[in-house]
Write a protein that binds this DNA or RNA. Structure first.
Lengths: 232, 232
DNA sequence: ATAATCAAAATTGTATACAAAATACAATCG
DNA sequence: CGATTGTATTTTGTATACAATTTTGATTAT
């Protein structure tokens, strides 16, 4: 074998990608508020680039629904009504259930082991005395990723990830209430057992319950932060 | 010249929108083949615009998955493998079933009447002596739109439309075989009856069967046109 | 005060310019 | 020949220029 000079491919990314990723994250984490204007020159100077890549990034964000474009009047961060959150959750529920069903059919023994391990990890993190939310959240994500991966459906994976990201703002809220950890552990366990048994109906059922609980938490969260500036 | 994109200067739309819509349609209808390169200057001169709006359009198409971007190496029309078609159909099936279920819950009496009318229209078009495929296809679309609208979920509507459009290339193929018209009429009828009776399970069942048949037709179509140039 | 008007400033839409990278292809070496 | 290098050409990435439109804010009339 020759020499394997491996240079970090992350060293360069097209600027529009960088701007896109950064703005995207800023919107999803709530760093940029709904209704806020995105002005090209300002963003460009902030990023230290020209308007061109900023415009490209904005067009991409619009395509993803994260910003709204009013011709000749610029872009604003899309406002997310309780209505639209309900819509997203409704779709995501169906997709998550589909994930569980497909996972029953297609998960490999190795992935099944990994799923079991992820459940245990989650349990350990949730029962730890310090209860680091970031750790717990990471375990939760890992667990879902294993199922998502097990579906073997790239498109589904992409769509579920996208929908989840739209809910990013509210993601950790439902983990703050440590009373529900026991319930979550049980739900995860039920999902694992169903998938391990290749029982599609049980998996769909268990997954549905799991999502419903998350939905309740998120909707409660939305209700609390209601009264914020709305627009369109 | 191979493609001759011309744009109507009468009505005003931002150029990137015009380019986006035109290219999008060209890709979905197969006018532009998978793997084909999209070169900025060429497209720009064809459209009679500068590279800027073309670049913006390409970024939007990439976001939608219709083109693949290779940094510094330009964009190509995304190739659709049989694999990815299967993935899309799998997701769309779940979403269509969800549509039927939600429609059961939420459809208005007026929309229900419209659905019945649409079924009759389809039947009439399918049993007509001339059997104009475009008319039949239009009825089919109208019928599905009514259900989609009845879900009251804008996000779902957008996602299902997007997924359907990805299948645009193969849409009409399954309507060419007039042997199946009787079956289609029956399936539509079953869906209508289930929704009218607000029977979610029956609606899901009927809708699932309907989609499965469509899927078979499309996958058969794909298998026929296999051996086409692949890439990534 | 409030509303209407209109020029100045700011912002977006589009085109172009130039640099960096990739590609094509001829010349060279083995 | 085939592989390799070097160079011209093409194409993309980014910045900038200018026109068209919208926004701002002062000014005036009601």
């Amino acid at each position: 074998m020759k020499h394997d000079f491996k240079l970090d491919p992350n060293i360069y990314l097209p600027l529009h990608e960088v701007v896109f990723n950064t703005l995207r994250r800023a919107i999803l984490t709530g760093e940029l508020d709904p209704g806020e204007r995105l002005m090209e020159i300002h963003l460009a100077t902030q990023f230290g680039v020209s308007r061109t890549p900023v415009r490209e990034a904005i067009r991409m964000l619009e395509q993803e629904g994260l910003v709204t474009l009013r011709p000749s009047r610029g872009a604003v961060v899309s406002s997310i009504s309780a209505e639209s959150v309900k819509d997203v959750l409704e779709v995501r529920r169906a997709m998550d259930v589909l994930c569980a069903q497909l996972a029953c059919k297609r998960i490999t023994p190795e992935a099944l082991d990994a799923l079991k391990a992820a459940c245990d990890e989650f349990k350990k993190a949730a029962e730890a005395p310090d209860k680091a939310i970031t750790t717990i959240a990471a375990c939760d994500v890992a667990l879902h990723d294993i199922i998502l991966e097990a579906t073997g459906n790239r498109r589904l994976k992409q769509m579920v990830n996208n929908l989840s990201e739209q809910m990013y703002r509210y993601r950790f809220e439902y983990l703050k209430d440590s009373d529900i950890y026991g319930q979550l552990i049980a739900e995860h366990s039920a999902i694992y057992e169903a998938i391990a048994a290749r029982d599609e109906d049980a998996a769909a059922e268990a997954c549905g319950i799991h999502i419903d609980n998350q939905e309740d938490a998120i909707m409660k969260q939305i209700a609390l932060s209601a009264g914020s500036p709305a627009d369109q």
